[in-house]
Design a protein around this nucleic acid. Structure first.
Lengths: 301, 301
DNA sequence: GCAGATCTCTGACTAATGTCAGAGATTGTG
DNA sequence: CACAATCTCTGACATTAGTCAGAGATCTGC
């Protein structure tokens, strides 16, 4: 369903050119980990653990390492007394990894090196140029992240889905200053029936292992689908993630033979409403009894 | 002499954050060379040769490889019939490397892979977002290149210096449509005396092994230095390279105990004049008989 | 024409990186 | 409680990456 747009080859050229000159020059940022007596891979692992401790599984995913290889690297760090590896109490097949105090010190040394290298790199620029560079990199960062977000259909009971729905309700509560706490568990249980196969689906967008957007779609009548639980992480607004998610959900509805998509929202959510209207949704009469909803939309695919 | 400015830690943070997310995601652009049966380093070398054939020396500099290591990689590519290595007729100690026809075909395969990977990466974005990303990356590219240009004092007879001075005269000829061809060799010979130790110095800015800017400074009277042969490559205007070079040359003059710096230029070179005035140069009377010069400047350090 | 500098290449290594199959522990499922 | 699934870890490799010293060819300056 997502429109087929051939990426302009100019943009591709710019990306490739940038990548070439960047990896050639600033790839050196990684080499700042050298000279610590640790090989690069090990140093990177140590740095990653310090930045975000967790299960070996998560580390493997983030660094793209083989399980045997990671195990060996961890053993080395453990032998040097820099990290502690303990079984995860929740599932004792898994291991939790964290830094020890000496490990924290080593991490800080790596952090200082990395900082110093970055500083050296920026130093030749005037402050005006540094500002320009920082602005350009921040913009590029957001867009690169947005481009590499992975949209996947998951069961609403999946941990990522739970996290997203929890954030969704938390946001609603904040926006509407509601006191009545929503029972997320009950909502998830209800979603697990409706927003799942065969008549529905729940989609979570994941970036860096964190849920950053979600949305569900399900059948509410013959040929009619409804989109629910649309949420985009605050730090991700303006990256087009909402529109992309919306298109994805429409595609899922179409796959299930549902040619009409409806949704409800609240007039206070002006960005969301703007996005729906940009995406071709038209306002219709109330079609359900959701007390929080004030506006109702429909789109014929 | 260059002012000491501590880089704002905000900018450093943005750079580091970008670097992390970028290498994690788009570092994969390099991996597009994988799956060709060639190890990454070899593929990268092949790609580099195809992009810009030349001496092994230049390849070594561009890729940062050990000479023995490069030699081995080249041998492998030669054995596979992908590259041809022949002695450089100009200096038979050196070797010239270029692709063979099968090598060209392999290069095109790599190019296609890289292009496809970049395209896949950009595809999830809307065309508006792709434009924003391309603009941000182009800006970042220019600034990153500018930040990593290396300024070094070299002998005016050094090949990089010759190349730069040649480009300088070519530019003058183009700007002033002069027919009288300058004898670059003779100019270099004269510079070799004046723009060298102990009373002078010649500076070349090198990026990717290519001379992108140059300038010389020498003593013309007690306590007075003159800056000559200032040139910045056309593709590098607007990156602050000229100002940086100027500061560097002023520093060299100061080191030699010369407290006043003069230079001449032509009124048509408006960008150069603007730069000099921004840098604190003030207009003075004609101090030499250079027929091409119309404007004369001086700065007290 | 000779001495010293420069350049590439080879040999001889060491360390790092990456891969695979399967052992052994633990957990969810019927 | 058996059985399949999941997870980490070990052993056994193969390959790649990177370094260093020196041989041999060639050039430059005197």
């Amino acid at each position: 369903m997502s429109e087929i747009v051939t990426t302009d080859s100019y943009d591709v050229g710019v990306l490739r050119r940038f990548n070439r000159s960047y990896t050639q020059r600033i790839g050196v940022l990684d080499d700042s980990f050298l000279g610590t007596g640790m090989p690069l891979g090990t140093a990177r692992l140590l740095f990653e653990i310090g930045t975000q401790p967790g299960t070996t599984r998560a580390l493997r995913a983030r660094l793209g390492l083989d399980s045997g290889y990671l195990s060996r690297l961890l053993r080395r760090l453990e032998r040097e007394g820099l990290v502690a590896v303990v079984p995860d109490p929740a599932d004792r097949r898994r291991r939790l990894v964290d830094l020890t105090d000496p490990g924290r010190a080593a991490w800080e040394e790596l952090d200082r090196r990395s900082e110093r290298t970055a500083r050296t790199l920026l130093d030749p620029l005037t402050s005006r140029q540094r500002e320009r560079l920082a602005a350009a990199l921040a913009e590029a960062d957001l867009l690169v992240r947005a481009a590499t977000v992975e949209l996947g259909v998951v069961d609403p009971r999946d941990p990522a889905a739970r996290a997203a729905v929890g954030a969704y309700f938390a946001e609603l509560a904040r926006r509407f200053r509601e006191d009545n706490v929503v029972d997320v568990g009950a909502a998830v249980a209800a979603d697990a029936r409706k927003l799942a196969a065969p008549h529905g689906a729940f989609v979570v967008a994941v970036s860096d292992g964190e849920a950053v957007a979600c949305g569900g779609v399900h059948r509410i009548a013959d040929g009619v689908a409804e989109i629910k639980r649309m949420w985009v992480h605050g730090g991700w607004r303006g990256a087009g993630l909402g529109s992309r998610l919306l298109r994805h959900l429409e595609g899922l509805a179409a796959e299930r033979g549902l040619g009409v998509v409806r949704l409800d929202t609240n007039e206070e959510l002006v960005e969301a409403i703007a996005m729906y209207e940009r995406a071709g949704y038209r306002r219709i009469d109330r079609y359900n009894d959701n007390p929080n909803a004030t506006h109702f939309y429909e789109k014929v695919l």
